[in-house]
């Protein structure tokens, strides 16, 4: 609580938006007035009491799809970040501790992944494996594993160079102890901040892929593809397609604000 009181307004705003999104996503079936793929009326119905945000290109309720979208888009982004993070961080710490050929092999593989722009790599890989939700999650996890690996390796390298690691090694401690008890606690704050930032990237990335029609596939409700499906409305001056796009922006801004605050606090604590 004292922590919250010291938070700047931007961070408080961020926390509020994040909490609201999580609640919407978790309880989507209870909150949404209509089903995710339920056709409830004509196409492109304007905003009304019955359909607060109107209907989409197939006559589904926009608001309900927005709420389900919170579940799908955010949920998948969380899942993907989680996979990329646990594997990337574990491999990075391991490479830093072991060094030698293991480090070389892992690092060169990561170099290759990072030598290709993420969106292009994702498009190429998805062209090969075909667009589907599990494929997309896998491909993005592989792509974002690379920067997480680099960061955690670099952070762990700084720790490995310190004498207390040498002291533990001289004692004969095993790899698991060294990783979990000696290294991880010292890089966890870096990793947590990075997790926030990576989540933003992954979230935007999924949204972009879905917008391009290669990510989350219809009829699943998702904020990225909802923009695409209803984009024609823009040309009539209707802002409805901007709402899912705005939701993406809002959530990402919020998380960035939170991460910024955390980083600021961490740097402040150090000095």
């Amino acid at each position: 609580m004292t922590l919250l009181r010291t938070a700047p307004p931007t961070a408080l705003f961020g926390l509020l938006v994040l909490a609201a999104t999580l609640v919407l996503g978790l309880f989507a079936p209870l909150i949404a007035p209509y089903g995710e793929t339920e056709i409830v009326g004509g196409e492109y119905l304007p905003w009304s009491a019955e359909h607060p945000l109107g209907t989409d290109n197939l006559g589904r309720d926009m608001l309900s799809r927005m709420i389900y979208g919170a579940r799908n888009t955010v949920g998948l982004a969380l899942l993907t970040t989680g996979i990329a993070f646990s594997i990337g961080a574990a491999l990075g710490m391991f490479a830093a501790l072991r060094g030698g050929w293991i480090d070389q092999a892992l690092s060169r593989a990561v170099d290759v992944i990072m030598a290709v722009p993420p969106l292009i790599l994702a498009l190429m890989l998805l062209a090969i494996v075909g667009p589907s939700i599990p494929n997309m999650v896998g491909v993005i996890a592989v792509i974002y594993l690379a920067p997480v690996y680099r960061l955690s390796r670099a952070a762990a390298m700084n720790v490995v160079a310190l004498d207390f690691i040498g002291a533990a090694q001289l004692r004969g401690e095993g790899t698991i102890w060294l990783l979990r008890r000696e290294i991880l606690p010292n890089i966890s704050s870096t990793l947590v901040a990075e997790a926030g930032l990576r989540f933003c990237f992954v979230f935007l990335f999924i949204a972009a892929l879905s917008f391009l029609g290669i990510g989350i596939q219809p009829p699943t409700a998702d904020w990225g593809s909802m923009v695409k499906e209803n984009a024609t409305l823009i040309t009539f001056g209707d802002v409805t397609p901007l709402i899912p796009a705005g939701a993406i922006a809002l959530l990402t801004v919020s998380i960035n604000f939170i991460v910024d605050w955390m980083l600021h606090r961490a740097s402040g604590l150090k000095s």
């Binding site: 310190l162 004498d163 207390f164 040498g166 002291a167 090694q169 001289l170 004692r171 004969g172 008890r181 000696e182 606690p185 010292n186």
Partner: peptide, 27 residues
């Protein structure tokens, strides 16, 4: 040190120049 026995490791201990970095700050 990997190939020394536990007793050999025990017999030879080390104290470091920078106590700051020789002790895990999280412990």
């Amino acid at each position: 040190h990997d190939r020394r026995t536990k007793d050999q490791l025990r017999q030879v201990q080390m104290i470091y120049q920078m106590a700051d970095t020789a002790l895990n700050p999280r412990h």
